[in-house]
Amino acid sequence: MAYEEVKVKKPLALRLLPIASLVFFLGTWQLIVDFEVLPSSMLASPWQVIQLFVVKLTEANPDGAVLARHAWTSIQEAFTGYILSLIVGIPLGLFMGWFVVAEGLARPFFEMIRPIPPIAWIPLTIFWFGIGLAGKVFIIWIAGIVPCVINSYVGVRMTNPTLIQMARTYGATDWQIFTQICIPSALPMVFGALQIALAYCWTNLVGAELLAADTGLGFLITMGRRLARPDMVVLGMISVGLTGAFIGVIIDRVEKRLLAGIRR
């Protein structure tokens, strides 16, 4: 037999180093706080953060909501904006990629909006929508729509021209070519946009909540600063990171499912 299963191990050092590195990182962090290298008004130790985490599971004060509610608010806002940006951005990008008229009309709009960082819309959205859900959803929508449009557009544009010519020789209409050839071949790029857009949405959500919110993980961070509670700030940061990573994993799963479904 030419093929056979074997077990190969990485060198011991390479397996131990990552663990050592993490332990060292967390240990140094803990010690810096314990020995007050940095004043306790500037940094909280990992242990303090864990303690606060346990407390915040049930205790709403001093920032007005338990941790789960903050997280839920953020997830809700992020998902609403995210889904809306997918619903609008992907078809828009696909159409722009194939139809001259769609491209001609939508592109200037898009190009004029695109360079404005979504965060810059915050003051306007506060005027327009107040500090509730709608304003933040708008900002997240703006953030998410850019990668959706770009990826779908490029995806359609990169369709193998031979395929299109082939379809033309069989007399396919523009619409048939668009739906039967361009969209399927753009799909990998479109799926690529799912993760990118999510990352954009999540980043900008935190920004929006720093400024215009009364619940949410970003608000938790801001409150921590206002109350000079570094443990709260760090807890907020870690929650944002973990929740973001968690949503990322879910989207990744969904993406794999969809791709597998399409391949079949």
Partner: peptide, 11 residues
Amino acid sequence: FIQKGTQRVHV
């Protein structure tokens, strides 16, 4: 060769 970390191929 060892392929994908676990499969030995006799080339």
